[in-house]
Protein backbone atom coordinates (compact mmCIF):
# COMPACT_ATOMS: atom_id res chain seq x y z
CA UNK A 1 0.00 0.00 0.00
CA UNK A 2 1.63 3.22 -1.05
CA UNK A 3 1.51 6.36 1.04
CA UNK A 4 -1.59 8.34 0.08
CA UNK A 5 -2.26 12.06 0.11
CA UNK A 6 -4.63 11.43 3.00
CA UNK A 7 -1.64 10.69 5.18
CA UNK A 8 -0.80 14.35 4.72
CA UNK A 9 -4.08 15.08 6.52
CA UNK A 10 -3.40 12.55 9.26
CA UNK A 11 0.22 13.42 9.91
CA UNK A 12 0.28 17.21 9.72
CA UNK A 13 -1.35 19.42 12.37
CA UNK A 14 -5.04 19.89 11.57
CA UNK A 15 -5.86 23.26 10.01
CA UNK A 16 -9.49 23.80 9.14
CA UNK A 17 -11.42 26.03 6.76
CA UNK A 18 -14.92 26.18 8.28
CA UNK A 19 -17.79 26.81 5.87
CA UNK A 20 -21.22 27.01 7.47
CA UNK A 21 -22.08 26.81 11.17
CA UNK A 22 -19.89 29.25 13.03
CA UNK A 23 -20.19 27.26 16.26
CA UNK A 24 -17.93 24.58 14.77
CA UNK A 25 -15.18 27.15 14.19
CA UNK A 26 -15.50 28.41 17.75
CA UNK A 27 -15.29 24.89 19.18
CA UNK A 28 -12.29 23.99 17.03
CA UNK A 29 -10.50 27.17 18.06
CA UNK A 30 -11.25 26.40 21.72
CA UNK A 31 -9.65 22.96 21.20
CA UNK A 32 -6.53 24.65 19.92
CA UNK A 33 -7.07 23.91 16.23
CA UNK A 34 -6.07 26.52 13.66
CA UNK A 35 -9.29 27.49 11.91
CA UNK A 36 -10.43 30.09 9.41
CA UNK A 37 -14.17 30.73 9.30
CA UNK A 38 -15.58 31.64 5.91
CA UNK A 39 -18.27 34.33 6.00
CA UNK A 40 -20.33 32.26 3.60
CA UNK A 41 -23.46 33.28 1.76
CA UNK A 42 -25.18 31.21 -0.93
CA UNK A 43 -23.26 31.63 -4.20
CA UNK A 44 -24.87 32.54 -7.52
CA UNK A 45 -27.57 34.51 -5.72
CA UNK A 46 -28.82 31.29 -4.16
CA UNK A 47 -29.49 29.55 -7.47
CA UNK A 48 -28.59 25.94 -6.62
CA UNK A 49 -28.11 24.72 -10.19
CA UNK A 50 -26.03 27.71 -11.20
CA UNK A 51 -23.89 27.40 -8.07
CA UNK A 52 -23.27 23.76 -8.90
CA UNK A 53 -22.40 24.54 -12.47
CA UNK A 54 -20.01 27.31 -11.44
CA UNK A 55 -18.20 24.99 -9.01
CA UNK A 56 -17.77 22.43 -11.79
CA UNK A 57 -16.35 25.11 -14.06
CA UNK A 58 -13.88 26.00 -11.35
CA UNK A 59 -15.35 29.40 -10.51
Amino acid sequence: MSETKINDLLERPLQVINVGLEGFAEELAAEGVEVVHVDWTPPAGGDVELANLLSKLGA
Partner: peptide
Protein backbone atom coordinates in the same frame (compact mmCIF):
# COMPACT_ATOMS: atom_id res chain seq x y z
CA UNK B 1 -6.94 29.04 1.53
CA UNK B 2 -4.93 32.06 0.38
CA UNK B 3 -5.07 33.33 3.95
CA UNK B 4 -4.19 29.94 5.49
CA UNK B 5 -2.06 28.03 2.94
CA UNK B 6 -1.36 25.24 5.46
CA UNK B 7 -5.05 24.34 5.72
CA UNK B 8 -5.76 20.66 5.10
CA UNK B 9 -9.46 20.17 5.87
CA UNK B 10 -12.67 21.97 4.89
CA UNK B 11 -15.55 21.45 7.34
CA UNK B 12 -18.74 22.08 5.38
CA UNK B 13 -22.11 22.61 7.07
CA UNK B 14 -23.93 24.86 4.58
Amino acid sequence: VDQRPGANLALISV
